[in-house]
C-alpha cells in the first residue's frame, strides 16, 4: 500500500459512533458519499468542510465506542480520512474500520504526541508513523488484515476469495475451508 499522508485532526477520549455518525441517519442514508457529508457532525461540525484526502484522525482511548453502525467507519473513509491513530479502539469500530479498508492504528505514544494540524506520514507495511521530527513504530498489520485493506475492504476481499475458491461455502451448515486457505 502507498504511504498515507495528511494533516492531523485531534480529538479526545471515548469518541462515540453517535457523534461520528448520528443514529437519526442510520436507516435513511445508504450512499457512502452522502454518509461522508455527516462525518463527525455532532463532534466537530466544521470537519467535513475542511478535511482533505489523506488527513489523519488522532484521538485518545476507546475511539468508536457505542453502536455497531459501520457507517461510522464508512463516513470517515469517504470523507477522505486516510487513517485513524488512537490510544485504543472500541472493538466493533476497530473491526469495521479494517473491514472498510480504513487503517486503525492503536499507537498510544503517537496519539499523545501528535499535534492538531501537524503533517503525518504513515507507512503501514513498515509500521512507521512520522510527524514533524518524531517517528513512532507499531507492529505492521498482519498479512490477513493487509489483504483486506489492499482489496479495499472485507466485501471485495471475500468476493475475490470466493471467486478464486480460497474460501468454500459450508455444506449443510457445516464448515469447510479450501486447502490453500492458510490464515
Amino acid at each position: 500500500m502507498e504511504r498515507i499522508r495528511g494533516k492531523a485532526w485531534k480529538y479526545g477520549d471515548d469518541v462515540n459512533t453517535d457523534v461520528i455518525f448520528p443514529g437519526k441517519y442510520t436507516y435513511t442514508i445508504s450512499d457512502p458519499q452522502e454518509m461522508a457529508q455527516h462525518a463527525l457532525e455532532d463532534l466537530d461540525p466544521g470537519f467535513v468542510h475542511k478535511v482533505a484526502p489523506g488527513d489523519v484522525i488522532v484521538a485518545g482511548k476507546n475511539f468508536g465506542c457505542g453502536s455497531s453502525r459501520e457507517q461510522a467507519a464508512t463516513c470517515l473513509k469517504y470523507a477522505g480520512v486516510g487513517a485513524i491513530i488512537a490510544t485504543s479502539f472500541s472493538r466493533i469500530f476497530y473491526r469495521n474500520a479494517i473491514n472498510q479498508g480504513l487503517p486503525a492504528l492503536a499507537v498510544p505514544e503517537a496519539a499523545e504526541m501528535i499535534q492538531a494540524g501537524q503533517t503525518v506520514t504513515i507507512d503501514l507495511a513498515e509500521g512507521q508513523i512520522m510527524a514533524g521530527e518524531s517517528s513512532f513504530s507499531f507492529p505492521p498489520p498482519s498479512a490477513f488484515v493487509m489483504g483486506i485493506m489492499e482489496d479495499g475492504g472485507l466485501i471485495p476481499h471475500v468476493k475475490r476469495e470466493l471467486a478464486t475458491h480460497k474460501l468454500v461455502r459450508p455444506v449443510d451448515g457445516g464448515l469447510k475451508r479450501g486447502e490453500d486457505e492458510t490464515r
Binding site: 455497531s68 469495521n96 471475500v158
Partner: peptide, 18 residues
C-alpha cells in the same frame, strides 16, 4: 456479541467469521 454490517453479509455468504 456485536459485529458490523460487512461481517454479517460475509457470514450470510460463508457461514463463518474470525
Amino acid at each position: 456479541t456485536g459485529i458490523g454490517r460487512s461481517e454479517a453479509a460475509v457470514i450470510w455468504a460463508t457461514g463463518q467469521i474470525w
